[in-house]
Every structure is written in structure tokens, then in C-alpha cells.
Design a protein around this nucleic acid. Structure first.
Lengths: 346, 346
DNA sequence: TGTTAGCACTCTCATCACCTGAGTGCTAAC
DNA sequence: GTTAGCACTCAGGTGATGAGAGTGCTAACA
């Protein structure tokens, strides 16, 4: 039976009023106060009946016999799918956000850090930003630069300006020319390849060719290191302070629990990956597969550049969350992020 | 009147027992329980008299008429100066710490991040690590590398491998040779100078000389940016989760307060600078000048390399803190940090 | 037949009185 | 100088009480 038939128009109005109110107040609400605060055109008794029905159908729940109702995961889901009032990001907020970026962002990683910060600041919840892998970046050049008589700086660059560098000690017999030769071989082999395409095989052939050079091990290490950190997706967090504003976290134990969860970087990344799709995705309470997340909701948005999937931004909070606000903010930040990244000549 | 005369031996023993106990339990303690738990050789009544004296002299304080005593700032001070039981870092802990560094640290900034993490993990308090400025690093070379027909990568290096890089768009008429020429001028002027020594004056002369080159503004911007981030001391924080373990932070408001304080990066840096001296410094509760810190203690240690002041590491927590443990840990981390930094060819 | 008023009932939460336990200061005896 | 004893204080737990917000059910009404 489709949802449209399951809930008639009045039930929907009641449900919406309850969710709206609970999102604001974090308190269960009963029929009388609901009738007083919202103009539903019917008496508390009628609302009571509707509420009883809604509870039967699983949209509401009651903490104990005589307290008001609160929305269940199913209730929030219905609300998000159909009842949610639009709450677009205001022009003033947009201007604020733009300025913020301009003032604070200089390096590319700061883009992600600031994005996380902004999201948490506005939503007063934890924000997650998964920065893109750089496996699609192309190997540009490996350079050795003499530092002094016994040391060289190694610099590896890709076409997005991603740079890995290390200082190497020259062994006794080596000269700077040895390094130059070695660099030439490496550059010929790897130039233009994506980091993803540089596999052990191509490294092995290089290894053979330069095996008699001094320090060839170190040179390969620099490359490997660049590959490693290029493959690594970085996760940026924000809002571990802001979340304390939510009444849900007035209990220190809950705070601890959430912080523990957030420390599991791999787990968080997995969750974000699972939601990586197109556009906005909202996962509410018990819809989460992970048992740790059953009383949290997470909203994710995937950002792309030229059609290519780059990463994900997300808001994580209690199921009682300002979905409308968070959703439109994520949507805006998503577009914005793409723009900002473009500015960085990604 | 010197402290040695002010407190006779028995008073000292009583004070020490009280501080030891309070550091463990976080509860005020009274004469009877004190007599039961610690073998002081006298009756509760006698202890009561001593405690009354200690309170008169300002070493103890009472929250209300009939609860036990807790140490005052002055009490902690006396304890730290003379009564503190040595609590050296065990060999097992040392091994653990070493492994930790080895497993997690690859880049130089990770050294500081991990140091902060270790300190907070062991002390269950907030840790602060102020990383050294790089103003003493020497300008090594500015390089332009062609990326494609319209873009170049700019890389600026110092003798400690500190690298700043940016991708520049080439304007219509410019050629790569223009950049090479420009780089030559800049390198001649700046090579070997410390970042601190590169002032507006020398930049101005360069500006004059290359003013007719395309994109000279961008080149100078890269240099300026390197100077900026070289001058900036980075602050690493750790333990905002661990601090929740302390009973002092069972109240969410306190947590908020501390997190707010920690967000004031400049303030924190000022505080660390103020304590930058030689060796270990302990500042207890009301000894802090900042009014926000009156019920916190901070222990700082300054690390150096070849006699040169590099930075500061610190533990920040409630006045009730395991001073002995924190102090010996900081001392050890201090030495350790110097060693690790050396390994990075700083 | 759907809506509403009324009523009895439930449950949480705040308040108050009360008691207990841990602590104190003071005094007198050892 | 030390200690036992005693009267006193105060925080925190326990239990009773009542208010307030909520419910479900029934009967009356349009």
C-alpha cells in the first residue's frame, strides 16, 4: 500500500507539526500543546486519535505511557521525503560563506578544512569532508636539487601541483650527476602516467635500470611515498565543539561515544563510501546499517568535477536534526566546492 | 619566612597525603579517612588540628563547612616543589612511544601531531605542541617547471626541505623562458638568506628588476606566501577526547568552556610563549595570569636543537592533575622530540 | 459516522521533610 | 602535645506528595 494512501492529508499535517516541533524543542509533544501551537483546525481529542493511529503505523513513538510522542525513523523518513519545508540558503549566508573561503583558504587542503568548519558552524553538528584521492593526478616530474655538499632535495610533482619532497643524504661516492641520470630514467618512464597507473610493475623495470646507481632505493621510496599519500583519501572533521550545543549531547557519555566513533577513520570512510552516489542522500536512525549509528542521521552529498566523482561532504547528527537546513546547505556547499576547486586549477 | 620553617615535617606529610589522595580520587578528604588510608601515626583529631593550620596558612581549602579539604593552588605549589614523588617513564612506556613514532610518522608535521597525541593519551589531558618557526630556514631555490602549454608549477625550497608550491597560469604573450630569467634574478638575490632576513626591502629591489616580466606579481606572491607560512608557528592540539575522562569535565559546560579557550589559537600561543624558558615550568591554577585559566594548570617544556630554542610542548588540565607523571613524560618527550627532529635532517 | 467534551488514570518531575554519614571545632582528660 | 568525646553542620539519598502534561475511553453531538 503506497504511502499516499496510508496517510491522509490531516495525518500528514499532524505528523509534520510534530516533527517540526520536536526538531525545534527536542521535547516530546502531546495533543493539547500541539493543538494550541499549531492551527490544525481540530480539537486535541481528534489529534489524540490521529496520533494513536500514527503510532500504530510506526511513524511516532512514545517514551512512556504518559508523555508526548516523538517521531520514529519512519516518521522522519516520511517527513524528509514529502513534508519538508524548503529552507534555501539565504543570500546573506551565501555571501558570508564566500567571504569566509576567500579570507581563510590559501592551500588546497584548507578548502576542505574550511568546508568542514563552515558546515559544522551553520548546522551545529559534526561535519565530514572526504577529500578526493589523487590517483587520477599525473606524474609530472621528479627533480633532484643540490642542497649542500652532502645532501639533495628530492621533489616529485604531479599535474595538480601535488608535491612530495624529502631530503636525502648522499652516500660517500655519489655525485650530483648520478642523481641527474637517475631522474632522467625515472621521468622518461613515468611522465604523464596517472598515479593509479604506476604499479609495481613499472617501478620494477625502473629499479632494474637504475639498480647500480647510488641511492636508487631512496629515489624509489620518494615515489612510493607520493603514490601512497596520493592514494589516501583525507578525511576532514569539523564541529566536535558545535555538537555540544545539541541537547542530545548534554550527557558526557554520549559525547564520548560519538567522539570514539569519529576516531574510527576507516569506519567513517566506509560509511561515506557507501553513500557515495549522485546528489543528496539522507540516512535516518535505524536505516543505518552500523549499529553505532542507530540513533544518528547522516546526510551526504557527492561532489564532482567534469562529471568525475571527487568526494563526499556530510553532516552527522542526532536523528532530531534540521534536515531542511542541512540539506540545502550541503547542496550549496557542494556546488561551491566544485567552484573553489576549479579555482585551484585542479 | 621560608617555607621550610613554615611547615614542619608532620604538616608536610599530611599535606602530601591530602594532595596524593585528591589527585587520585577527585573527592575532598577528611581527617578520619585520611588517618585510615595513610599511616600517619597520629589520630584523626591531631590530623584535624594540622589540617586547620594548613588551611589557615593557605595550603588547603574547604568547599563548605563540613566537607573535607582539598589542596589550594599554594598547596599544589608546595607539593610540586618539594613533596612530589618521582614517577619516571617506564621502559615499557618508552618502547611503546618509540614504536608509535616509528609507525605513524612520515612527514615532519606528523612528528608534532603524534607528539600531541601521545602526550594526551598518556596523561588523559589536553596537550599542546608548538612547532618551531622556520624563519631560520634559508632560501634555497625558486624553480619554475612547465606543466603544459599554459601553466607552470612554481616551487620554492629552503634548506630544511620546506616547500611551497603553486600552479600559475601563463598570460598570453609569456614564454617559459621569461620565467627562467625571472627565477635567475630572484635566486641570485635571495639564495642563502634566512626567511627572517628576507624583508620588504630586498623584495622591492627584486620587484624593480623584474617589473617588466610577465607574472612577476605571481612569483613574488609565491615567495611571500612561503615567508608567511614559514613565519607562522603551527600549534598542534591533542586530547580533546581524553579530557572527558577527567571527572572535572563531567559537566558539559566546562567542556564547552575549555574548547572555546582552545579555539583561541593566538591566546594559547601567547601563553606558551610566556612560559618559554629553560626546562620544565609548572603553572598552577591562580598562578595563571589569564582569568580563564584560574582553575587549570599548565606544564610546559621547551625543546631545543643545538642550543637553539625551537618550540614548546605542554599539558593543560585541571589543577588536580598528575603532576609527577605529566612532568616526567614531558621531560622524556622533550628529549625524544629533539632526537626525532634530528632524524628529519632539520 | 466522524468529531468532540469529559473524565479517570498514568507517569514524570519538582519539592519538601527527614535521616544518615562524613566532616568539623572545641573542650577536657591523658 | 596528643587524643577521646561530643555537639554541631552540611550534602546527598530516600520517600511522600502534588502539580502538570499526557493518554485512552466513553458518551454525546452534528
Amino acid at each position: 500500500m503506497p504511502a499516499e494512501i496510508e496517510l491522509d492529508e490531516r495525518k500528514q499535517r499532524v505528523l509534520r507539526a510534530i516533527v517540526d516541533d520536536y526538531i525545534q524543542s527536542a521535547e516530546p509533544i502531546g495533543s493539547r500543546t500541539l493543538a494550541r501551537k499549531y492551527d490544525l483546525g481540530v480539537s486535541p481529542a481528534t489529534i489524540r486519535n490521529e496520533m494513536a493511529d500514527l503510532e500504530m503505523l510506526g511513524y511516532l513513538q512514545q517514551l512512556h505511557t504518559s508523555s508526548g510522542r516523538i517521531p520514529s525513523s519512519k516518521g522522519y523518513r516520511f517527513y524528509v521525503n514529502g513534508l519538508i519545508p524548503p529552507k534555501p540558503v539565504s543570500d546573506a549566508e551565501k555571501a558570508l560563506i564566500d567571504n569566509w573561503y576567500r579570507a581563510r583558504v590559501r592551500r588546497i587542503d584548507e578548502v576542505f578544512q574550511e568546508t568542514a568548519r563552515i558546515i559544522s558552524k551553520v548546522t551545529k553538528n559534526v561535519s565530514l569532508v572526504l577529500a578526493p584521492q589523487m590517483t587520477q593526478a599525473r606524474f609530472r616530474v621528479l627533480q633532484f636539487l643540490p642542497l649542500d655538499s652532502r645532501r639533495v632535495i628530492t621533489v616529485l610533482m604531479t599535474d595538480v601541483g601535488f608535491v612530495e619532497n624529502k631530503i636525502l643524504e648522499m652516500p660517500a661516492g655519489a655525485t650530483f650527476e648520478d642523481f641527474q641520470r637517475m631522474a632522467q630514467v625515472i621521468n622518461e618512464k613515468l611522465a604523464g602516467k596517472t598515479l593509479a597507473a604506476i604499479e609495481q610493475k613499472s617501478l620494477a623495470t625502473i629499479r632494474e635500470e637504475i639498480a647500480d646507481e647510488p641511492l636508487y632505493e631512496s629515489a624509489l621510496e620518494v615515489i612510493n611515498r607520493a603514490l601512497d599519500s596520493g592514494r589516501r583519501e583525507r578525511l576532514y572533521l569539523g564541529g566536535t565543539r558545535q555538537m555540544l550545543e545539541q541537547p542530545e549531547f548534554h550527557d558526557v557519555e554520549k559525547v564520548k561515544h560519538t567522539l570514539m566513533l569519529l576516531e574510527e577513520e576507516e569506519l567513517i570512510k566506509d560509511i561515506l563510501h557507501a553513500h557515495m552516489g549522485d546528489g543528496l542522500e539522507v540516512t535516518i536512525g535505524q536505516e543505518n546499517e552500523d549499529s553505532e549509528m542507530q540513533d544518528s542521521s547522516i546526510i551526504t552529498a557527492t561532489y564532482r568535477l567534469n562529471g568525475e566523482l571527487l568526494g563526499t561532504i556530510a553532516v552527522l547528527g542526532p536523528t532530531r536534526m534540521e534536515y531542511a537546513k542541512a540539506m540545502s546547505l550541503l547542496e550549496y556547499m557542494n556546488d561551491n566546492l566544485t567552484e573553489v576547486i576549479k579555482r585551484f586549477n585542479w
